[in-house]
Amino acid sequence: MSDNSHVLVIPCSGVGKPLGSVAREAAYQVIEDLRPGMTDTVCLSLLTMGDAEAQEKVRTHPTITIDGCAKACAYKNVQSTGVEPTADLQVVDTYREHRELKVPAVIDIGETGRELACHLADKVAKEVDRIVEGGD
């Protein structure tokens, strides 16, 4: 049974490309700034490795995945636990709307990277609201 009052936001663990770091920053913006108390995350690698507690969280809460590249690891790995993510966002879709926001590096995504993450986080927050308000 799904507890819709609390939403999991799971970014990809992308370490090779800057957009993976944007996914991660967007998730933290939602969890810590935009929707604290009603969102949380789990380690994707822990979930992937079959950790019982992580899998239980994903099974009992709606989940939003954020992917940094087309390989869609966050989406696929959540799906592999037998749960379909409630929503799935790709960083590149937001980047297409804001092509001026180039992301310079993986470790420090810079001001432009944080701004891109901000636009993405707004979308994620709206999805959280939709889920919590019963729109899903």
Binding site: S13, G14, V15, L44, T48, C73, A74, K76, N77
Partner: peptide, 27 residues
Amino acid sequence: RVAVRQVLESLRPEDTVTLCLPLFLAG
């Protein structure tokens, strides 16, 4: 991840590569 990027970018750029961990399952 920050430590790994430091090795990749600065300490041993010629000797190292990386892979996003969940690709082992999704890849």
